[in-house]
C-alpha cells in the first residue's frame, strides 16, 4: 500500500477520500490498478498493493494490507502464480468472504489472456522458480491490456449494474485508444523488428513478442537464481556470436551483472520499469509503454 502519511492521518480521523465511489477495488499490481481506473472512472476507488518499482513475486503479506482487503468489493490479481507467495495469506486474513477466489469479488485477470511459455512435461524446482502455468508478465503486451481491461469492465458491470453502461462505454473508449497507440508503438519499433536481446529475468517476453523482438538469453541461469560468473560468460559469448547488442534490465534487480555483460559484449544497457509507476513519468499504462518504446528506440 502506498502509505501517504497524510492519507493515513485522514483515515485515522475517519475522513475517507473518494467516499462517493460505488466500488472499492484492490489490485495486486499498479498496472491492473491503472486499467481499472480507466474503465471504472469515478465510480471506482482503486488501490494497488505492489509498488510500481517492486518485484511482484516478492511482496510481503503484511497484515496491514488485510485491512484494505477487508473493505474491498473486488480484488483483481495477475494470476498464473505470480502472487502465490503472498496473496492467499492476505485473502485469508482479510476475512472478507466476497473476495475469496471463486466469488464474483475476485478476478484473476489471467483468465482473459492466453499465456506463453507454458512448460511442457514434468516441471520441478530444479528448473528454478518456474511458473507451471505460463509466464505471468503478460500485461506488457498492449493487446493483453485490452483483453484485461475488457474483463475488468465486465466484472465491474456485474458487481455494479447501475454503472454498467458507464463501464462499457469507458472500456470501449479505452480499448480504442490503446489500439490507436499500439499502431504508433508498432511503427516506432519497426526498425528493431527481428532484433535479439537479453534480459535479466523473463519479464519482457510478452512485450518483445508483440513487437517482434526476441530474448535469446537471461542473466539468471534459471528463473529466480542469481547470475553466476560462468553463466554470464556464456551469455556474453552467445551475444557476440548472435549479434545481440541490447541488454534489458528490470529496475528492481541490481544492475551490476547486466552492466558488466553489456560492457563486455559491447551492447547497450537499457534499465526499464516493468510496471506503472516504476519510474517517474510512467503514471499510467500508456505512459509506461511509451516509456519502454522510447527507451528502446532512444539515442
Amino acid at each position: 500500500m502506498r502509505a501517504s502519511p497524510i492519507l493515513c492521518a485522514l483515515a485515522t480521523l475517519g475522513i475517507a477520500p473518494a467516499a462517493d465511489a460505488a466500488l472499492k477495488v484492490i489490485t495486486t499490481t499498479t498496472d491492473l490498478a491503472d486499467l481499472t481506473r480507466k474503465v471504472g472512472g469515478d465510480r471506482v476507488d482503486v488501490e494497488a498493493i505492489c509498488h510500481g518499482d517492486q518485484d511482484p513475486h516478492f511482496v510481503e503479506a503484511r497484515p496491514s494490507y488485510m485491512v484494505d482487503l477487508s473493505r474491498a468489493d473486488l480484488v483483481v490479481a495477475v494470476g498464473l502464480d505470480l502472487e502465490i507467495g503472498w496473496l492467499p495469506a492476505l485473502l485469508q486474513g482479510a476475512r472478507n468472504p466476497d473476495i475469496n477466489p471463486g466469488r464474483s469479488g475476485f478476478l484473476d485477470a489471467s483468465t482473459a489472456i492466453v499465456p506463453i511459455e507454458v512448460p511442457r512435461g514434468q516441471v520441478d524446482r530444479s528448473q528454478g522458480d518456474v511458473h507451471p502455468r505460463g509466464n505471468p508478465h503478460y500485461w506488457l503486451d498492449p493487446e493483453n491490456a485490452m483483453r484485461v481491461a475488457t474483463a475488468i469492465g465486465d466484472r465491474l458491470a456485474r458487481l455494479d449494474p447501475e454503472g454498467a453502461d458507464d463501464y462499457r462505454s469507458r472500456t470501449r473508449a479505452y480499448v480504442r485508444r490503446l489500439a490507436a497507440k499500439l499502431a504508433g508503438w508498432r511503427a516506432a519499433l519497426l526498425p528493431l523488428a527481428g532484433a535479439k536481446v537479453v534480459s535479466y529475468h523473463r519479464t519482457f517476453n510478452y512485450f518483445l513478442a508483440r513487437f517482434d523482438l526476441h530474448a535469446v538469453d537471461y542473466m539468471e541461469p534459471r528463473p529466480g537464481i542469481p547470475p553466476s560468473a560462468s553463466h554470464l560468460a556464456q551469455v556474453i559469448g552467445r551475444m557476440k556470436r548472435e549479434g545481440v547488442n541490447l541488454v534489458l534490465h528490470e529496475n528492481f534487480y541490481e544492475p551490476r551483472a547486466s552492466r558488466m555483460v553489456a560492457a563486455r559484449a559491447d551492447a547497450t544497457l537499457v534499465i526499464l520499469p516493468t510496471s506503472v509507476g516504476g519510474v517517474r513519468g510512467t503514471g499510467s499504462y500508456i505512459a509506461l509503454i511509451d516509456h519502454l518504446v522510447s527507451a528502446l528506440t532512444g539515442p
Binding site: 509498488h51 518499482d53 518485484d55 516478492f58 528492481f252 541490481e254
Partner: peptide, 9 residues
C-alpha cells in the same frame, strides 16, 4: 524494514 525497490536484497 524492507525497501520495495530492492526487496529481495
Amino acid at each position: 524494514w524492507r525497501p520495495p525497490s530492492r526487496a529481495v536484497y
